[in-house]
């Protein structure tokens, strides 16, 4: 606390110098991100309000057509406006598949994280190693791997044919299910790692104390263990949900152009669809949904920490 005016002035001069020094430390990173990420995103926002060129690109001139096309379509016969069911179906599918992926990684990831965290310290490192390798392995390689298993001539079908469980190979590729399996496979480590980090910090004596106080096992799990895992679960869900919602490679390879997701729809508008304003508007919509989900999660996480912690 400053005791006299001079000291206060001094103090604020020091503070200003400190602020300046630290801003200049951050400046290079901020410049790169502003130029290469924020500025292009701004260009996208601008493009979404322009007119579409006949063969792609945009033309100068303000237009809301791009945004209109995200939500409204024209009727085939009388050109009246109707909801853009095609886009809305893809949006709904993307959100549902991303949620389902998060749920599946949750179902498999939480017990796995728990399992690793409760191994004796000596072996725990080896289990960690095993979960880290897929995380650091190329996403494309992992997609190819899972695709090999479920395609018509793939391992699973051969196994089922050989055991006589089926007579005809099952066509599992190019369906929503295939995309879901693929995304769960590639994003699973993203759920395990943060949950593991949360459990690892956990002092198990707390739970035992609760049990000693005649808490039931379920009560103990719900009121003691779950709150402590909560930050890890929130982080894991965000890490899975966001890339799953905007996924491009996995649905492209496993959906075969039929089970399209939001990211593929954006790509289509900038390529064959030749409607850049629509593509830009779809991009901004996706970004807003992701940011919205993030804010919602962050609020929930904060609330969860308040009531439970």
């Amino acid at each position: 606390m400053p005791r006299n005016p001079t000291a206060a002035a001094n103090e604020s001069a020091v503070m200003r110098a400190e602020t300046r020094r630290r801003w200049s430390l951050a400046l290079p990173a901020l410049t790169v991100i502003t130029l290469c990420s924020i500025l292009p995103l701004g260009v996208m926002v601008a493009y979404s309000f322009m007119e579409a060129g006949q063969y792609g690109n945009v033309q100068w001139g303000f237009s809301l057509e791009g945004w209109r096309a995200v939500f409204l379509d024209r009727d085939f016969f009388d050109d009246s406006y109707i909801p853009a069911t095609a886009h809305l179906t893809i949006l709904a599918r993307s959100i549902l598949l991303a949620l389902a992926t998060t749920a599946l990684t949750f179902v498999f990831g939480i017990p796995t994280a728990w399992f690793i965290a409760t191994r004796p310290p000596a072996t725990r490192a080896y289990w960690m190693f095993l979960i880290t390798v897929p995380f650091w392995t190329n996403l494309l390689v992992r997609t190819i791997a899972i695709q090999e298993v479920i395609r018509a001539d793939g391992t699973l079908n051969r196994l089922l044919l050989a055991t006589g469980l089926i007579d005809e190979p099952l066509q599992m590729m190019f369906t929503n299910g295939a995309v879901l399996v693929g995304m769960t496979y590639v994003y699973l480590p993203l759920m395990v790692l943060p949950v593991y980090a949360a459990i690892e910090k956990f002092d198990f004596r707390l739970a035992e104390a609760a049990y000693d106080l005649h808490a039931s096992r379920l009560y103990c799990l719900r009121r003691v263990v779950l709150p402590l895992m909560w930050p890890g679960i929130v982080a894991g869900s965000i890490l899975v949900f966001i890339p799953a919602l905007g996924a491009y490679v996995t649905p492209r390879l496993m959906g075969g152009g039929r089970a399209m997701m939001w990211g593929n729809l954006i790509d289509l508008q900038f390529g064959q669809g030749r409607n850049w304003p629509l593509g830009a508007a779809l991009s901004i919509t996706l970004t807003l949904v992701v940011v919205g989900a993030m804010v919602w999660y962050a609020r929930r996480a904060a609330k969860g920490a308040e009531t439970n912690g």
Binding site: W23, L30, I33, S37, I38, L41, M44, G246, I266, S283
Partner: peptide, 22 residues
């Protein structure tokens, strides 16, 4: 500063890629 540093994480990859391409 922290928000800007994390901004690339908030933008879906395909959006970042196309915006940058343009």
């Amino acid at each position: 500063i922290a928000v800007i540093l994390n901004q690339p994480l908030l933008v879906p990859e395909i959006v970042f890629a196309i915006a940058l391409m343009v």
